[in-house]
Design a binder for these strands. Structure first.
Length: 899
RNA sequence: GGGAGUUUAGCUCAGCUGGUUCAGAGCACUUGCCUUACAAGCAAGGGGUCAUUGGUUCGAAUCCAAUAACUCCCACCA
């Protein structure tokens, strides 16, 4: 049989993914096993897979696949997020391209277009996740706006309103003039920008004197209703009680005095525009100032903007400065660097704006969400995010949950006018609202349609905060079997930038609606950056397309590449070349299979000692590594666990174990050793499977077949056929994950000595230019009084290609020597020894050993050390001293023999 | 302006409660090999004042303090 020497992921990966789907191996139903639940951080329904998703979902898949193999009932629920602002913007653009203006559409019409768009373009990302190998339970795929989730959100709104936690109020909010909606504080990104600081003259009413006020936003003077100075500012005492004239506007406004003002900044005088700055708004409230709103929703000037009405705010800034300058009202202009808030979604400069919005009170929810993290009911990995979390919750403000959009859950608040007053009724449906209206205000309305529903929708995060609950229908049916079985979920894998948006709020929702945490561990991934350390972004074009990476390196290769460099919470500087390492690894395993498959197997041959001891060592080695990998998983150190598995497979299994067993050309291997080898190989594939699901499935099947054909059912054709057929129906996905068992470290130590001996001989060949084919003699002189462990001598003979190993009591003349610990090894060589070079080398070693001894002696001659340090440490130092002395003696003897 | 974190080999990172797992790993690099599993490979090898400076200690990469550089988070300084 010919197997290609290069592993081709493309022919393998799709095949197995289809197989897993057909066998429904990702599907979970509640049963009597322990559940292991992960909910996907729902990507935007219109999004496409980027490197961040790749990392995030690879980690989830590793954890889910491992849990499944550990015997848990693993359930990974996928889904998408309706992403109000982003999706609505895309739909609006699409309509624009078709020549349709959103403003010309009725709400219903727009929603129809939006749903069409979602059906057509949505969910691409979930298809892409399949390429990655994600073992999501696709039967459970959800959408934050599907009927169950929609209704859950509405019910929660009504419930929280009835509990008095949701209220409507006129507040200063962050207004996005591009998306025409309010956004929450968390959705505002402050960016450093190079602005100007304008110094404007405000003349005192009826006088020729003026005061200079500095501002970065001169266009807002149209809304000025006061100028404020510090009450103790000597410079401005003369202004007390006076009024100044807003330049260019000619409106007299009062001088107010408040300690809020920083005397050091600018001129120490601050203009107050209550409608367009949060601080000014607060001062305006304090002093009862008029609030003049000069902007339209889209950031243009309204009718209060005088001659500038209709202009964009930035155009107005230029125009107004020109006019003021001409009027001699500008003192000076300085360059100035400040932070300007931008909308996270549209990048528009945020305008603080007074408007009526819905808010969710945080005073009750926040402390509870903080407590469960403080108490470690929920653990963060890495832990440092606890600080960030705490700080935010301790300084939290009420959450603005209304958005002036159409794509989203429409706020279930209904209005009616009673005696000229607007009354609000909040209910799950219009019909329920009508019933309530009839009870509360008899005779006011006669038909549900007469109620006027709030125009706004809810913040997208107001639906995703319910995700771990609503996915199992735990809001509408809080006692259903699924929510009781799957909730709380186990691990949440997410990026740190949504710790506030999402993580904190899910915890609040969990406490409020389940009285239980939504998950036990939160694993924060790093941010994927490019080689230069820049964040990957569309605008920079520095993000590789994940799908083409998968095509190039295989999903296994990409998964491994990402994981190797991504410890929890660390940013990951991504370079395509790390996927090569993954691809190469898959290839390595592939070739190990080719080797093993190619061996001929003999039933007659008894297992020899070398093979027996090799199998024993490999099993112990595995147990040792497994133990440490299990600890890594407990601590969410996935990259470490992967690296250890990588080395176990490549170094221990391929480079050592298989070489130890490899039969001489044309000779067979005994069937016992062969069976053990296949079993070990299978277990290694199980260990690796969570990381590299495809190649391991492929190899695992081949190994099972190989064992049936060559060992178990070699002589029973009928049974063999049955077993092969059965194997074709099985999967590595649901095999038991190997677990650590007791192992004897002495076997591992003995092998390490043998390995060093082999390396010593190989090194010698290398440096002396001796062919690996030339058989050498090896003499070993153990430290006197020590009995050497000879179990691996046969292995040394084979892998170092020596004729035999002879144990001697004295040094061997005319040989090249090296030391392993205190054991001396001698290899006689036929070529002339370059005595001077050898002596030089030995003298260097001697120098080092003597220096080492000196440092040990220094410690031992220090009374404080001998008395102060623990007995064990002192004993170790004494041993070091003895070893060093022995070594020095040996080196000296070697030098003498060369002279 | 407040807070957190990082600094160990060319790169990415391990180094738990101070002491032979203390200077490590992978990749990259150098040298020699197309040795019938694998050149996407094999064998061997080189490479670091553990950011700087002080302190604690018998002993510091590890604990403490200061400094420097970088990163992130938070905050309304016009």
């Amino acid at each position: 049989m010919e197997i290609a020497s290069k592993y081709d992921p493309r022919s393998v990966e799709d095949k197995w993914y289809r197989f897993w789907l057909e066998k429904k191996l990702f599907h979970s139903e509640p049963d009597n096993r322990h559940p292991y639940t992960v909910v996907i951080p729902p990507p935007n329904v219109t999004g496409v897979l980027h490197m961040g998703h790749m990392l995030n979902n690879t980690i989830q898949d590793v954890l889910v696949r491992r849990a499944r193999m550990m015997g848990k009932n693993a359930c990974w629920v996928p889904g998408t997020d309706h992403a109000s602002i982003a999706t609505e913007a895309k739909v609006v653009n699409m309509l624009k391209e078709r020549g349709i203006d959103k403003r010309d559409l009725e709400r219903d019409e727009f929603m129809k277009y939006a749903w069409e768009w979602k059906e057509e373009h949505g969910g691409i990302i979930l298809k892409q996740l399949r390429k990655l190998g994600a073992s999501c339970d696709w039967d459970r795929t959800a959408f934050t706006m599907d009927p169950i989730r929609y209704e859950s959100v509405i019910r929660v709104f009504v419930d929280l309103y009835n509990k008095g936690l949701i209220y409507r109020g006129v507040r200063m909010v962050n207004w996005d003039p591009k998306a025409l909606t309010a956004v929450s504080d968390e959705e505002v990104i402050y960016k450093e920008s190079h602005s100007k600081l304008f110094y404007l003259r405000y003349f005192v009413e009826g006088e020729d004197k003026y005061i200079v006020v500095a501002t970065t936003r001169p266009e807002t003077i149209l809304g000025d209703t006061a100028v404020c100075v510090h009450p103790e500012d000597e410079r401005y005492q003369w202004l007390k009680g006076k009024r100044v004239v807003v330049p260019g506007v000619n409106r007299p406004v009062p001088i107010i005095m408040d300690e809020y003002v920083d005397r050091e900044f600018g001129t120490g005088a601050l203009k107050i525009t209550p409608a367009h700055d949060i601080n000014d708004y607060n001062l305006g409230m304090k002093y009862g100032l008029e609030s003049i709103d000069i902007f339209n929703d889209d950031g243009t000037l309204n009718e209060r903007g005088m001659q500038y009405a209709g202009m964009d705010r930035f155009a107005c800034r230029k125009a107004i400065m020109k006019d003021l300058d001409e009027a001699g009202l500008v003192e000076k202009v300085e360059d100035y660097v400040n932070k300007v808030g931008h909308s996270e979604r549209t990048d528009a400069v945020i305008e603080p704006k007074l408007s009526a919005q819905w808010f969710l009170k945080m005073s009750d929810l926040a402390p509870r969400a903080l407590k469960v993290v403080e108490d470690n009911d929920i653990q963060f990995h890495p832990e440092k995010f606890k600080n960030i979390y705490r700080h935010w919750l301790e300084n939290i403000k009420d959450w603005c949950i209304s958005r002036q959009l159409w794509w989203g859950q429409r706020i279930p608040a209904y209005y009616l006018t009673v005696d000229g007053k607007r009354e609000t009724i909040v209910a799950v449906t219009r019909e329920e609202a009508y019933e309530q209206a009839c009870k509360q205000f008899p005779g006011v309305v006669t038909n549900p349609d007469q109620l006027e529903q709030d125009e706004d929708v809810l913040d997208t995060w107001f639906s995703s905060w319910l995700w771990p609950i609503s996915l199992f229908d735990g809001i509408r049916n809080p006692d259903n079997e699924e929510i009781r079985y799957y909730y709380p979920t186990d691990d949440l894998i997410t990026a740190p930038d949504i710790i506030f948006f999402w993580v904190a709020r899910m915890i609040m929702a969990g406490e409020e609606y389940r009285k239980a945490v939504p998950f036990r561990h939160v694993y924060f991934t790093g941010i994927v950056r490019d080689k230069l350390g820049r964040k990957m972004s569309k605008s920079l074009g520095n993000s590789p397309d994940p799908i083409s990476l998968i095509e190039q390196y295989g999903a296994d290769g990409v998964r491994m590449g990402m994981l190797l460099t991504a410890p929890a919470g660390n940013d990951l500087p991504f370079d395509e070349s790390i996927c090569e390492q993954g691809r190469n690894f898959a290839n390595k395993i592939w070739n190990a299979l080719r080797l093993v498959k190619g061996w001929s197997v003999s039933d007659e041959l008894a297992q020899n000692d070398d093979n027996r001891v090799s199998v024993e060592w490999m099993e112990q080695r595995m147990a040792c590594v497994l133990e440490s990998i299990e600890k890594d998983f407990e601590n969410y150190r996935l990259s470490e666990a992967l690296m250890k598995t990588y080395k176990l497979v490549w170094d221990d299994f391929c480079s050592w174990f298989l070489e130890m067993l490899k039969p001489a050309y044309g000779t067979p291997i005994d069937s016992e050793t062969y069976g053990s080898t296949l079993a070990i190989f299978e277990r290694l594939m199980c260990m690796l499977h969570p990381f590299m699901p495809f190649v391991t499935e492929e190899i695992w099947h081949a190994l099972i077949d190989c064992r049936a054909e060559n060992v178990d059912f070699k002589n029973d054709a009928a049974k063999l056929q049955a077993v092969l057929a059965l194997n074709a129906q099985q999967s590595i996905m649901i095999q038991h994950m190997p677990v650590s068992v007791f192992y004897d470290p002495r076997t591992l130590e003995a092998f390490d000595v043998a390995r060093e001996m082999i390396a010593g001989v190989r090194n010698l060949r290398n440096s002396k230019g001796l062919s690996p084919k030339e058989s050498l003699e090896l003499f070993v002189k153990p430290e006197s009084g020590h009995t050497p462990d000879t179990r691996f001598d046969g292995i040394v003979i084979k892998l170092a290609n020596v004729k035999q190993i002879s144990y001697v009591d004295d040094k061997v003349d005319g040989a090249i020597s090296f030391m392993i610990g205190t054991t001396e090894c001698f290899v006689p060589v036929s070529t002339n020894i370059d005595k001077e070079a050898e002596i030089k080398k030995l003298e260097e070693k001697l120098k080092y050993a003597e220096g080492f001894l000196a440092s040990v002696m220094k410690k031992l001659s220090n009374e404080k050390f001998v008395n102060g340090a623990p007995e064990k440490v002192v004993a170790v130092e004494r041993q070091k001293k003895a070893d060093a002395e022995q070594k020095i003696a040996a080196i000296k003897a070697q030098i003498a023999s060369l002279q």
